[in-house]
């Protein structure tokens, strides 16, 4: 489902003396349906960079990143948007929303984007918000003023409302209390059972051990630095 071949990533900082930072090289990765792979490695090893490349948010310098059969390195913007709408979900650490849009609409939006009728999209959004213990009185408010843990759960609800065949999870349990953490891990297990291919970053070792089938140490893709 997710397939990376010989992917590399370089940042060139044109306005800082054209410094070139080689972050990743020769990345090969395969994630099959129903499998959850954890990206590990020290801070700065490139875990988030790799995840952002798989989402098409960062540009790979070379290689192939295939999700659902489309190479995101070469794809036109509209193809990447289609893959994100239909195939590839992403739960980031930060919630980015239009001010003023109520939480229920924020969560229902991924379903509306694939053409689901409003009542069905909202019913599923309500179901997820209930499971994630977001109080009903908050549903009509914009999540911009919510606490960190609430925003994260809104983000998770958004990422799980549509059954994406591929999912990227960037520290989905980071700011959650034990009860909500358990609910989120349950959602991940359910997604695996229905066949989702998942790549995740989990600093929480117990969470990682519970849902992940294997670990990839991103440090092994760190290129040799010319001295």
């Amino acid at each position: 489902m997710i397939e990376l071949r010989n992917v590399s990533k370089t940042f060139t900082l044109h306005n800082q003396g054209s410094a070139v930072i080689n972050v990743l090289a020769h990345v090969d990765l395969d994630v099959r349906p129903g499998e959850c792979v954890a990206l590990t490695g020290s801070s700065g090893a490139g875990k988030s960079t790799l995840m952002r490349m798989i989402y098409g948010n960062y540009m790979a310098r070379s290689g192939v990143i295939r999700v659902g059969g489309v190479d995101l390195v070469q794809a036109e913007p509209r193809e990447i948007i289609r893959i994100r709408r239909e195939t590839l979900g992403y739960v980031s650490q930060f919630l980015r929303v239009v001010p003023r849009v109520p939480t229920l609409q924020v969560v229902a939006e991924p379903l509306r984007a694939i053409g689901a009728p409003p009542d069905r999209a909202e019913a599923q959004a309500r179901d997820l918000l209930t499971r994630l213990n977001i109080p009903r009185r908050l549903w009509s408010l914009s999540p911009t003023t919510f606490s960190g843990g609430e925003q994260q759960r809104v983000n998770i609800a958004r990422g799980f409302v549509h059954p994406y065949p591929a999912l990227l999870l960037d520290e989905p349990t980071a700011s959650l209390d034990p009860e909500n953490r358990d609910i989120v891990l349950g959602l991940i297990e359910t997604a695996k059972q229905r066949g989702a291919a998942i790549v995740g970053i989990f600093h929480d070792t117990d969470a990682r051990n519970r849902v992940c089938d294997r670990e990839i140490d991103v440090g092994r893709f760190t290129p040799e630095q010319a001295a």
């Binding site: 940042f11 060139t12 900082l13 044109h14 306005n15 952002r52 098409g56 948010n57 960062y58 540009m59 913007p77 990447i80 948007i81």
Partner: peptide
């Protein structure tokens, strides 16, 4: 793609 250009700008001017 908008978020790619804004989050990983390639050209000196965009940066």
């Amino acid at each position: 793609l908008t978020d790619r250009v804004l989050d990983d700008p390639q050209h000196a001017y965009t940066q």
